[in-house]
Write a protein that binds this DNA or RNA. Structure first.
Lengths: 346, 346
DNA sequence: TGTTAGCACTCACTCTTTTAGAGTGCTAAT
DNA sequence: ATTAGCACTCTAAAAGAGTGAGTGCTAACA
């Protein structure tokens, strides 16, 4: 049995209607509100076929049909039109966003949090956003003695991201030595990435350091830590409570589980890696069981990746019920993505 | 009508029982499970009095009684015994905590987050913790040129808290000038607090700066920002979903409202200031409507303040239903507070 | 005078039954 | 191939009945 044009149309109508109303849709509704001019009985036959094909589901015998995961999949892959009429509204949104975002480019964290909040408010779903994985290369390093026995080590990375650490010295250092170390580090490592700092370089440095070999090693550790940027990955969420707007998610058990997942940010990293379901343009859609996070199997997740430069990127995402307004969400994500790209490039 | 010993005992029995069971408690229960040897009828009479006095409430005509806010207040103020037997258990807990905490003193943020998690797990309520308001005085300042036209400004505060900012210069600076500025700032401002940096000092500095007056001003702004520490106040929450364990909080509307409040960390700052209900030892208990946050009027909140040094402190708190196990919560908070004090003093 | 037994009464809860409505599947006619 | 018609299914909401915990009041008692 194949999906002919009529079945396709009917399926589309069912899904559209369900997305709008959130109620299972019956044959009569489709019969009335499509231009197919078919009686409900005919629709019923087709629906039975569609169910057999796995695109729709009957919650119980005497209910209408709702889309299955497979149905949704088909919808987002083939049915979601990018309506041109909506561009108008969209354009307005873009501008608002721009104004909103450009106010405070300073504090990246705050910017991201606000962006998440904006997204959550706009869509009425839960949003999440991860800090970008910045900076691959070293730009500048500054060592200075804060007080006796304490060496302040400031590392500036490409993209003007700054890390610092105070190192406890076991002996005193004179100003001259510190100056020398500063020059040594900056001359040797400037512009290099984690990978480019190899053993050859390191041994050259330790050789030059003379009696301060140990210290150089310690400082290199700090640099490594900074470059790895492991501990920088932060994930912000917003609009958690929006899930209560959707009865299918808001019973105590499910809500609790979901909110728990959102609180344990670490669990969310899975969402930020997988690119399997990417559909060009850096938008990924996970429907139901497709999501890499078990607890979200009753949700859909849409993510987008914003980029600063090659390979330096973060992720924004929306989590909502499977019957979310995918078009709106994708629109919003695209807009925000563009805005973020723009802001960071500046 | 006064609260004689018998009424006191009965009230205590009612509250204890209610805290344990979570069910309204009836006269028969009290009659059986106290050593007063009174019939249920007598208890009923007393209960009627206690209700008139405002200590207990009847949810509906044919239900037992539950404590009112006033009743809880009396309980935490006068009935909560610090049972010595519990000290044993407590001692064990302390040690566990110590091991747990001493692992990672490095990353304060992580430490606090983990502490919050620990508290939430231990108590089965929601926990919150605020970063300490550090550092009042300036320890060290370091200016250095990262690349042409960009000046890196690192400010180290008492307590080794580090802030940095990159300043865009409108003109080039030579190494000598930067050195001079470094010396100027460190000599003039070292060890001073926000308040001590007065206009006299500032004008002296700008005078000495010569053509770089404007730059000095900019740097002073950075210093001021760092010293104010406004943007440092962070609040972490954990165990949000624990509220679902308490039916009186977990209906959709209330839970949503609560979680929303917890998400909007800014709203929580109110909890961290007010000291009105402090009961020695830095433990504050807010019952129901007493809390400064409207949305928590069905909860009780217990907070403790941990201190680094005079006036430098943060707050830990527990949010739960009014029928929370106050003794346990207070124990836990005390323990954690002590641990944090110890860790930070080290 | 304080305490108690006894009893009628209240009210939330649970369980069952009823009803209404939406929607289906099947059959026979077109 | 499509449709009208009808019996059937199932949910959700409403209505009703029974249960039990707990009360308030009264009258008797020590």
């Amino acid at each position: 049995m194949e999906l002919d044009t009529r079945k396709f149309k009917i399926l589309q109508a069912i899904i559209k209607n369900y997305l709008e109303t959130g109620e299972p849709v019956g044959s009569r509704t489709i019969s009335k509100y499509t231009d197919l001019n078919l009686s409900s009985a005919t629709i019923r036959n087709e629906m039975a076929d569609l169910e057999e094909l796995g695109y729709i589901i009957q919650p119980h015998t005497s209910a209408g049909r709702i889309p299955s995961d497979k149905g949704y999949r088909l919808y987002v892959d083939q049915m979601m039109s990018e309506k041109e009429e909506e561009l108008n509204n969209r354009e307005r949104e873009v501008i608002e966003l721009k104004e909103f975002l450009s106010e405070k480019v300073e504090k990246v964290e705050e910017l991201l949090q606000d962006t998440a909040k904006l997204l959550a408010n706009n869509t009425n779903y839960t949003s999440l956003i991860s800090t970008p994985k910045y900076f691959k290369s070293l730009k500048f390093i500054q060592l200075s003695q804060v007080e006796s026995g304490k060496l302040l080590c400031v590392v500036v990375l490409q993209g003007n991201v700054i890390k610092n650490k105070i190192i406890d010295l076991n002996k005193e250092l004179d100003t001259e030595t510190i100056l020398k170390l500063n020059i040594l580090f900056n001359n040797t490592l400037n512009g290099l990435t984690m990978e480019e700092i190899n053993l050859a370089l390191i041994s050259r440095m330790t050789a030059q350091a003379g009696e301060h070999t140990e210290l150089v090693r310690t400082i290199l550790d700090v640099v490594a830590q900074a470059l790895s940027g492991d501990d920088d990955l932060k994930i912000y969420t917003s609009g958690t409570t929006n899930i209560f707007k959707y009865p299918e998610l808001s019973d105590s058990a499910k809500a609790s589980e979901l909110i728990c997942t959102l609180e344990e940010k670490k669990l969310l990293t899975n969402l930020l890696v997988d690119k399997e379901h990417s559909e060009g343009k850096g938008i990924q859609i996970y429907i139901g069981a497709e999501t890499p996070i078990q607890t979200m199997k009753d949700c859909s997740v849409v993510t987008a990746t914003y980029e600063l430069e090659d390979g330096v990127s973060g992720t924004i995402g929306i989590i909502g019920p499977k019957r979310m307004d995918y078009e709106k969400v994708v629109e919003n994500l695209k807009t925000v993505k563009e805005q973020l790209d723009a802001v960071f490039k500046k």
